[in-house]
Amino acid sequence: MNPDLLWRYLPSLISGFGVTVFCWSVGGALGLILGFAIALARRFPFQPLRWGLRAFVEVFRGTPFLMQLFLLYSGGPYIGLRLSATAAGVLGLALYSSAYFAEIFRAGFGAVPAGQIEAATSVGMAPFDILMRVTLPAALIAAAPPIVNMLIILSKETVVLSIITVPELMYQVQTMAAETFTAFDAIFAMAVFYWLLVESVSRLGARVENRMTAFLSPSGARA
């Protein structure tokens, strides 16, 4: 362990960490939005659309993220899609995670008790109102824990972006290791940064979950 070395490379490590957080948060947010849209669209009784979206989910869940990223970054130009490494990385994370988020939201919709929807139907509420006021809140609450889980997994998938030269944390760590021949120091620094990220995500997630489900526990709710 060499503190001087770590100190010297700290600026590049911090910049790498910044890029990691940026790619993860933007990619994750886009993935959430896209995944939600897919789950919602799959509820429409239009078969071709359902099949198409199902195929999308199967492809992006069923193939390695690394391969998707390569295709997007190196194969993209062949179909006129010229992206910078970072843009390709963010888009790749968004597409990849959207497939998982779509499944999480689908399960969330499935977890809404039929009785709650029947109650809304029996008072004559319109389908859109039922969706907005009954189905969605219940589905989102059910989906919150697996969403936080997926976001944590996604934060660690960002290391793959180093392979298409996105200057994120893994990339900086590899550079540091190559320039100084110190594998351990570099890896140690990386572990600390990732731990920092995951720890704050899971804490934030736990707080959000608690807030969302406070009313479910007899003592926890604030009226």
């Binding site: 109650a119 029996s122 008072v123 319109a126 109102d129 006021r133 809140p137 219940a138």
Partner: peptide, 27 residues
Amino acid sequence: IGMVFQHFNLWPHMTAISNVAEPLRRV
């Protein structure tokens, strides 16, 4: 036609008053 169910079927994310007021507002 009012209906009351065996398992109540209240909306758990709404307070008692919101459960009652919700259909009044939407319907």
